[in-house]
Design a protein around this nucleic acid. Structure first.
Length: 466
RNA sequence: GCCCCGUUCGUCCAGCGGCCUAGGACGCCGGCCUUUCACGCCGGUAACACGGGUUCGAAUCCCGUACGGGGUGCCA
């Protein structure tokens, strides 16, 4: 294949949607796989939003994902003269015409003519003069059909009599995206148009314009299955939390996000799902993309993110998690304990939840269920605490193995004395962390220090009412 | 209404006429490991929407039905 040129052409809506990100990704994968070019083009045809803020809202998430573009961003709004010229060419060639009818006019005419609802070329021969509020419509051929030879869907044929003469220039003179699309794709030498299935219906219109403008062979088209929500509806901003920035903020790793997104609508032939981006690039193929829509499952995303987090070295983890760690945390301690945290979190934002007890002066809140189980309802918890406060008064307080055996011995000794199993770790954990679950204590205790360890046991004794 | 697209375990993916008594992953359930929670390991659960046809043979091809989705005259 000749080096392809593909483009990602988002509307500047002020954020990047996961569905859009997936489209961008598939374009990028295709370009990288074939050694082609990936072009970014912002489709701001209505000229209302092209502030830096809107541009960043699209570019930043793409950069974060690692989807580097080779050209652009181009702005459709800046190409308006070319679009206008194309519209004029079509008018001159008799392939487009002016129309000044309102929707109500059109509906009335359809009703009077006994035709289905829709615009039936009413102004084709009315010789309407151009003017304020007058639109330009494309004259769709009455006969025949247009065939989209889709790389994913195969042959899709749409009869021309189901396509009404559509508007290509608004009443205010601005070009509509169909025409901008055709002109830009042509001028930019786009060879493959890869986008969501929601645009499949508009493709014949763009193809018709392409042909009318004498552009020659159309690009290859590939319409990706839609990403849907639990209700199987197209993901929407209002209903679903879909901004990529939200995933960034929660602490998903870009490689994990990319990996997860690549698995929606596509799967590697060898069934190995979690793998480096370079492998995804080399295995990717548009022909292997499926047709059915996909639900973006957060649970699986978390699993994938956890896998990537676990694969980080401690130093890498600290660096990645730093934005979510309060400033008073000792990052050297975090790095030592990193592996224990990494295996327990699925997003980086969860990291403080496992570490916070290490960096506060005292426990202000205890998990009541854990307290009830280990303390109030724990066997001989009062005696365990009393013994621990004695035996843990050791120097130096820096040997995890020694701390472990020391603590467990307390439980074992009391077990023998009482004749029933006494757990010493459970009360200690609750006393130190306020929780019944957490990372292993021994190493962490050496960083908590003897002083805080003993004072927390004492605090627990007071709370127990001993 | 009309046009277009789709339909394999709850979810994502594999399967592109015989290798399928349908495979992998997530989830879920059970077990092992473990004096916490996890990780890890082992096992289990669960699907070809339905009906015709083509064929020696269909999850794979064709037709229809059902269901779902997308589009539908100045959003992109």
């Amino acid at each position: 294949m000749q080096a392809p040129r593909v483009r990602f052409a988002p509307a500047p809506t002020g954020y990047l949607h996961v569905g859009s990100a997936r489209s961008a990704l598939f374009n990028w994968l295709f370009a990288r796989h074939h050694g082609g070019k990936f072009i970014l083009r912002v489709e701001d045809t209505d000229e209302s939003r092209k502030s830096q803020e809107f541009i960043d809202a699209v570019c930043d998430p793409l950069r974060w994902l690692g989807l580097d573009w080779d050209e652009g961003p181009y702005f459709q709004s800046q190409r308006k003269p070319d679009h206008t010229a194309a519209i004029e060419q079509l008018i001159d060639d008799g392939k487009a015409y002016f129309c000044d009818l309102s929707l109500a006019d059109s509906q009335r005419l359809s009703a009077e003519a006994g035709l289905r609802e829709g615009y039936h070329g009413w102004s084709r021969d009315r010789n309407v003069a151009d003017g304020d509020g007058v639109v330009v419509r494309f004259r769709v051929p009455d006969e025949g059909s247009t065939v989209v030879d889709d790389l994913i869907r195969g042959r899709v044929e749409v009869a021309h009599d189901t396509i009404d003469d559509f508007v290509i220039r608004r009443g205010d003179g601005s070009p509509v995206f169909f025409i901008a699309n055709a002109v830009d794709d042509h001028d930019m030498g786009i060879t493959h148009v890869i986008r969501g299935e929601d645009l499949l219906n508009t493709t014949p219109r763009v193809m018709l314009l392409w042909e009318a403008l004498g552009y020659g062979p159309v690009p290859r088209y590939a319409h990706l299955p839609l990403l849907v929500n639990e209700q199987r509806k197209k993901l929407s901003k209002r209903r679903d939390s879909v901004a990529l920035s939200a995933f960034v903020a929660e602490g998903y790793l870009p490689e994990a996000m990319l990996n997860a997104l690549a698995l929606l609508g596509w799967g590697p032939p060898d069934e190995i799902e979690i793998r480096p981006t370079t492998e995804i690039v080399s295995l990717f193929s548009l022909e292997a993309v499926n047709k059915g829509s996909a639900y973006f499952d957060l649970v699986k995303l978390k699993h994938i993110n956890n896998a990537y987090i676990k694969a980080l070295t401690p130093a890498e983890f600290v660096q990645a998690a730093a934005p979510w760690l309060p400033g008073h945390y000792d990052l050297e301690v975090v790095e030592v304990l990193a592996p224990e945290v990494q295996q327990r979190i699925s997003t980086l934002s969860e990291a403080p939840g496992w570490l916070d007890w290490l960096f506060v002066d005292e426990i202000s809140e205890y998990d009541e269920k854990a307290w009830a189980k280990a303390m109030t309802g724990g066997r001989a918890a009062d005696r365990v605490l009393a013994e621990l406060i004695e035996v843990l008064d050791v120097d130096p307080f820096n040997d995890p193995g020694l701390l472990e055996t020391t603590v467990l011995e307390v439980g074992n000794r009391l077990s023998e004395e009482i004749g029933a199993r006494v757990m010493s770790q459970a009360p200690l954990r609750v006393a130190l962390t306020g929780s019944g679950a957490g990372i292993p204590l021994w190493e962490a205790m050496t960083h908590l220090g003897k002083e805080r360890t003993l004072s927390r046991i004492a605090a627990a004794q007071r709370r127990l009412g001993v």
